[in-house]
Design a binder for these strands. Structure first.
Lengths: 341, 341
DNA sequence: ATGAAAGCGCTAACAG
DNA sequence: CTGTTAGCGCTTTCAT
């Protein structure tokens, strides 16, 4: 058994304990080069016996290789990014790479700080949400000399690689579906987030497409903080009190949409006849609601997988522009809250 | 502006650009020791001009200090751990420490791997969920020679420090409240997770307390995978079909509880008269439901904050056993689904 | 207030 | 198959 040490063990300790050079110990521990089965066994035994844990700090410095991928996202608290992380994990598990997550809270200054922090560990790649970054942040990304994949959004130009969906188009598509279904008096609810560029782009695409049909949004409301489900209820109640003639409500995310749906069911509204509803994201949660909210899948898992795939591929192969710009296509679910056109 | 370099910049580059020794540059960049304002300014200018990002790998090796805290949790996908992370972040932001998260998927072998991985970066501390770990994992934790805080659960003995609630007691308390309210025919639903020790302990505490009142659980069901909300619906429907006389349903988490609640409201059940309900966790989501599900707060944010606080404190002060074993007390919310006794 | 020398623990690149 | 020799980029320590 291991004795509790003050000083962490080094390769040298294992070397002495096994009577083999540090170099050979290192080889065994990394499965590198040829080592005879006999010595291999001896080294492994000694390392285990001592409870040796390699020092990656030293290893990374010496080899100039750090098998870390910096993953920079705005938030962990809305289930969309955890799902992206899941996709990243799935792919990286088959490689020596490990993700390290940093959270920006949608703040550009914090993004800059986090990025700086992470780059100072010299990771093998960066996966970062969004295409909008401060100038210093873009400069750092460019100067890092490692693969950079910007994810979630494709409405803009990436520093290097890019995987996502067009949120502008997602907004347009939903507008099209709504108009085709015959709805005309439309209200919008979303987060009060000037810094959530993807929500903004969806909204822009949405209004733009409506405009082409000569329709303008009749009412809108924005919230921040609190339980999204509860906010969805409240805002829906308020909006319908204010604008009782609305026949469709478009929510910028499924959570507030679900809140609205529950509220309207409570009140006995005819859905989707009297009023239609739609959200965005395709969150699993919707499956458990009394009615299926119309929504649009954001391809979160796939985005994570593809992004990780690009980083992993670049480890071996030089960049091939061709497969570094990936636009996924979200599909609409009509559910039970949006008539088919 | 920065020119795109192949080789990352080193201290030496800044030294040459500013005409000051590497050592002095290092001092400036770390705000260490006395440096004249003039040279400080010159160095800072040069560093910025070049776009220098320090190499923490080298710094950590030289100084034998790594300002990382390993945070090891079972999952990111159920909102309880992200909230713990938020608490950890809040406290660590006031220190030089940075959290690095590893996910185990509730698998002991994976926990072992992740722990090994993280320890090999020589972090300044470890925050790890649960008190149950494999022998090798416990050995590693002990041998690491750094503060270790085991979180979430206090039913057991920690390697070092511990912050959490007693899940056994939580189960007992809920049982007490249910019995006092007059319910007698009780069903239980939870995850099929032999490895979720906290859920198991709640269940044990629950049945144990019921037994003291001469009550036995009449029906039970376990699920795995899928949307928890949807599972809550399904399982509730099935259980009531099987055991129509139940007058209370205890769910091992709020998500399935919410699903059950929505189902029963749909079916027009009198809640909490004909049948009562309770979940566990106190998730924010519940605020948006048509009725407030009875639940019990798991003190997630506070657990994260306290755990991070212990690590931060240990950086300066030597361990004082006294404030390293913290048991938080969850409070019951009766909501609208559990009569008061 | 600043600099020079000596490693931190490991691995690349060569010898044998 | 195994060992030796140099560093990796930074910080510690000790001079100046």
């Amino acid at each position: 058994m291991t004795v509790e040490n003050k000083r962490p063990l080094t390769l040298r300790d294992v070397s002495e304990a096994s009577g083999v050079s540090e170099m050979t110990v290192s080889r065994v521990l990394r499965n590198r080069g040829d080592v005879s089965d006999a010595t291999r066994a001896r080294v492994l035994a000694a390392a285990k016996e001592l409870g040796y844990v390699p020092n990656k700090i030293a290893g990374a410095l010496a080899s100039n290789r750090v098998n870390l991928v910096a993953v920079i996202i705005p938030s962990l608290s809305n289930m969309v990014f955890p799902e992206v992380l899941t996709g990243i994990n799935q792919v990286l598990e088959g490689t020596p790479l490990q993700p390290v997550v940093g959270v920006t809270d949608y703040l550009p200054e914090k993004e800059e700080r986090v990025l700086y922090e992470m780059l100072s560990w010299r990771p093998s790649g960066v996966i970062i949400a969004g295409l909008e970054h401060s100038d210093p942040a873009r400069a750092m990304l460019k100067a890092a000399g490692i693969p950079v994949v910007e994810i979630m959004d494709t409405d803009g130009s990436p520093v290097d690689a890019m995987v996502g969906i067009s949120h502008r188009r997602a907004g347009r598509e939903m507008a099209r579906a709504i108009v085709e279904a015959g709805y005309r008096r439309i209200g919008f609810m979303g987060t009060k987030m000037p810094l959530d560029h993807r929500a903004r782009k969806r909204f822009e695409g949405f209004t733009e497409k409506l405009a082409k049909h000569g329709i303008e949004i009749e009412d809108r409301a924005f919230y921040s903080g609190g339980s999204a489900l509860a906010k969805g209820r409240e805002m829906t109640a308020e909006m319908l009190a204010r604008s009782p003639d609305l026949d469709f409500l478009y929510y910028s995310n499924d959570m507030i949409g679900a809140g609205g749906l529950l509220y309207l069911l409570d009140k006995g509204y005819d859905i989707p006849g009297r009023i239609g509803l739609a959200g965005f994201n395709g969150v699993e949660l919707l499956q458990g609601l009394p009615r299926q909210l119309a929504t649009m899948d954001a391809c979160r898992l796939e985005i994570g997988r593809k992004a990780a795939g690009i980083i992993a591929a670049r480890l071996d192969t030089p960049p091939r522009e061709v497969d570094s710009l990936i636009t996924l296509t979200p599909t609409i679910s009509y559910g039970d809250t949006l008539k088919r056109g």
